[in-house]
Design a protein around this nucleic acid. Structure first.
Lengths: 353, 353
DNA sequence: TTGTAGGCGTTATCAG
DNA sequence: CTGATAACGCCTACAA
């Protein structure tokens, strides 16, 4: 609760105010015990599990605690119990807006359930990632790995230590949250086919990206089903800049429509093509993935297969918290839906000119 | 209850040999001491302050630690020392891309110096913010407040407890990192004046936003200097949607150029104006603030006064860490430069039509 | 330089 | 239901 306009907050130069009795550091359960006239262990009980003490003492203790403005010392609590009310989140690239959704989904879910989130990034390096993960493991109750780059065995090893949830990748034996690409890709390819496209290019992401592989498979399958030709192009990096660089390959591929591993690539590609006077979507249709913030700022606005990243973050955190609280779940993969967001960057192919 | 994590989980890669003697939980300095044949306190010294033990024992201990795959228990360490190697960051709105730069600047700086970052948001509520801040204070060594909404006294109270650095606001007696708006605004207004504009509108942000106030002052001052008329408009919320909603007021204000509190507002405003067939910049020029990710995705790309958010995050974290490490700083405000990023959304006013 | 002993704030185990 | 009393893992005077 919010305290009732308690004592002075002021004391700009005067560091700390005294607690009830003496004039020193933060109040402990001993101070409370003294004020309430009970034993420290009783205070501990009253403050952690409400129900192990009589209603009367409970109230005395709570009053004393409030009066002294007591707060538990998380470290002291963590020492015997090992629990910290803290969740870890490691993202592959904090620069990539794809992860913003995940971060905020996880953060809000965590704080809503009275946990706080620790954030780290791996800078797309599996080594950095592992280091960060190990470091976090010491401090958190559970860990969320978003688009991890380390190999499966390492992930399983971590998961053997404390609960781990993986986003954007499937790891056997570890709970995962992954967008199910099929629906969205199917919609995208059908839309392109209906608009007269015959040859589709897929611009891949980083080789270690599990998700990039799935998306390519999905594109292949959907193309086959729609009797379209699919070619795969490689990108140097999954960024706007990487998208610009791949424009030349896209052009020479002869494809009239291109799906990119993510929206960043799509946006960079579109910029570069337009700079070369290629009209989007009349000459080339572009479809991204993820529907990141800003995907609808472009002209034409970007058609994209939406992956609900914030939902992934939320679901992952929820899953993790449920596991931590014993609300058991089968160790399985949670799939979230993807869908085509049809905007202006894809459309009918205009021949000739 | 929680089940004992006993049976060493598979560990596909065969991680570690069991620790020295027994076959159970995580190794402690006692285990190391046993293996190295010294006293636990010596191990403690060797592992924290390199230099208090002989080179020989140092090596023995390090070897033993490595062999046992030892990691310090952060809580056990934090209990006596109070230090946690953890920094807190609270942002006003985790949904707002403005903060992404700050987050990543702070995160990378922190991990580069072997700290980890805890993230929380206040959802633009001063109460939530205070709650989050108090909670974090218990766990972190220092706190960064980005665009805080609570009042100065509360901030100073927190700062009296542990080191605090504020971003995007000036609080007397607390180290702050703020973009200096003058240069950027000056450039923007001069540019608009040179393009024939006579009346400028400023779309304000949230009332509690210190920065919004400074920007308005800057606009007023610069307009006065350039002999332009300045009017202030209010927005409902500092988002794309808020920008759309304020379009009607902008139109009826009679201004031919508008600066908005942030890029989000500018983008929303531009979308709405264009939907109403107002040509940007021919009929109305738009200038945002911050140069967020995606500001150059629009058509025309957004002219904006760039505030180097990532730099703010970096500087704030650096400042905080320096304070924590005793590398004292005068408690003063660090100003980072702003500059006009001239893109397509502002330009010459085209009369008539 | 290294060992001894006490404590950091909570929780947990056992009596009473 | 409540009061002692050990841990928990590490740090730090103080002593040797």
């Amino acid at each position: 609760m919010t305290e009732p306009t308690n004592p002075e907050v002021a004391a700009t130069t005067d560091p700390v105010k005294k607690n009830g009795r003496d004039g020193k550091s933060k109040p402990t359960i001993y101070d409370i015990a003294k004020v309430a006239g009970v034993n420290p262990s009783t205070v501990s009980r009253a403050l952690s599990k409400p129900g192990r003490v009589s209603a009367k003492t409970q109230k005395m203790i709570e009053d004393a605690a409030a009066e002294l403005n007591y707060r538990v010392n998380p470290f002291a609590r963590a020492l015997p119990t090992g629990r910290t009310n803290t969740l870890g989140l490691i993202v592959a690239d904090i620069t990539n807006p794809t992860f913003f959704g995940i971060i905020r989904g996880a953060e809000s879910t965590a704080t809503a359930r009275d946990y706080t989130l620790m954030l780290a990034e791996s800078a797309e390096s599996s080594e950095t990632e592992l280091t960060a993960a190990r470091r976090m493991m010491a401090t958190v109750d559970g860990l969320i790995l978003a688009s991890p780059r380390m190999d499966d065995d390492h992930i399983r090893a971590l998961a053997g230590d404390k609960p781990v949830v993986v986003i954007n990748r499937e790891v056997e034996g570890v709970p995962c949250v992954v967008p199910d690409v099929n629906k969205g890709i199917g919609e995208a390819i059908r839309s392109l086919a209906a608009n007269g496209h015959k040859k589709i290019a897929y611009v891949a992401g980083p080789p270690q990206s599990w998700m990039s592989g799935r998306r390519w498979e999905g594109v292949q399958a959907a193309c086959e089903w729609s009797k379209l030709e699919a070619v795969r192009l490689e990108s140097s990096k999954p960024t706007v800049d990487g998208g610009r660089q791949v424009a030349r390959d896209v052009l020479s591929s002869g494809a009239t429509a291109v799906l990119t591993y993510n929206d960043l690539l799509a946006i960079g590609l579109m910029q570069e093509l337009q700079a070369a006077s290629v009209v989007v979507p009349d000459q080339i249709s572009i479809v991204g993935f993820d529907d990141i913030f800003g995907a609808d700022f472009t002209t034409p606005p970007l058609t994209t297969v939406r992956s609900p990243m914030a939902e992934c973050g939320t679901e992952a955190a929820t899953l993790l918290l449920d596991v931590l609280h014993g609300t058991e779940h089968p160790v399985s993969t949670l799939r979230v839906e993807t869908e085509l967001v049809l905007r202006g960057s894809s459309g009918r192919l205009l021949r000739g000119g």
